[in-house]
């Protein structure tokens, strides 16, 4: 009897806890997004070199940062999961990977869109873009590995190992790409980050970063909860939950 109670309470508890936290993350993410995007797109001054097209950094930079942030989250969760054998942490890895991949894709896409007016081509082998492309490959590899296992406990563990291998490798990849780039590319305007940014450009950027980070947290919790429900779908508490919510829908309908 006890051995059933113990992990069951844990998953149920973290389900409830993440449910309580979720609205707070959303409460931060939405207003900051509205304020940040309007400020950044409409009120921040135009760049003297790049004109209005620089404004894409208000999407690109936060997305790129959170692409890394999602990976760090995964790496920490993977480490906890493997060392202390905590299945919930391995679920977090699996839940975060697709979000990280989407953020990376947004960063890549906005980077390319920025490149079109700047460099005259959709794709230039810029160090930062190349690193992001490789990061996307790594994300896709982790997601593919996770989906390939039919036993999701093993899948979570395999994905966690690969995440940790990646976390050692990613800095090396980044470093090698930057070096390779300086050798092959020469002098192009590759920098998104100006040496010093005017305050009225920087503040909306910071707001957007906060917004993207909060939204990342919200999405991670959301997918984490789904993951729990899926894995535990035969447990009594999930069944009770489903019955409860369907009956409340019926009442409303």
């Amino acid at each position: 009897m006890w051995k059933w109670l113990h992990p069951y309470a844990k998953a149920e508890k973290s389900y409830a806890l993440s449910g309580k936290l979720m609205p707070w993350f959303l409460a931060v993410a939405l207003p900051t997004f509205v304020v940040g995007i309007i400020w950044g797109l409409a009120f921040a001054p135009a760049d003297y070199q790049q004109g209005d097209s620089f404004r894409i950094i208000y999407i690109h930079v936060p997305a790129a940062m959170m692409a890394m942030g999602a990976y760090s989250t995964m790496a920490i969760a993977a480490f906890i999961g493997l060392v202390w054998q905590i299945r919930l942490a391995e679920m977090t890895v699996a839940a975060t990977a697709p979000i990280g991949a989407v953020y990376t894709f947004i960063a890549l896409f906005t980077g390319a869109a920025w490149g079109k007016p700047m460099w005259g081509a959709w794709w230039v082998w810029d160090a930062r873009l190349t690193s992001e492309l490789i990061l996307l490959f790594v994300y896709l590899g982790i997601i593919a590995l996770y989906n390939a296992f039919s036993d999701k406990v093993l899948a979570g563990r395999a994905a966690s190992i690969l995440t940790l291998v990646g976390v050692i490798n990613l800095p090396i990849i980044h470093f090698s790409v930057v070096w390779w780039n300086t050798l092959h590319q020469g002098a192009t305007i590759t920098k998104f980050d100006q040496p010093s940014m005017a305050t009225d450009m920087l503040v909306p950027l910071l707001i957007m970063i906060v917004s993207f980070a909060a939204f990342l947290g919200f999405m991670v919790l959301y997918r984490f909860r789904n993951e729990i429900l899926q894995r535990e779908s035969h447990r009594p508490w999930v069944i009770a939950l489903v019955q409860q919510s369907s009956s409340s829908v019926n009442k409303r309908g």
């Binding site: 051995k3 039919s150 036993d151 999701k152 406990v153 894995r231 035969h234």
Partner: peptide, 9 residues
């Protein structure tokens, strides 16, 4: 001791 074996849930 109290072994439980789970395969694919």
């Amino acid at each position: 001791k109290n072994l439980t074996c789970v395969r694919e849930e």
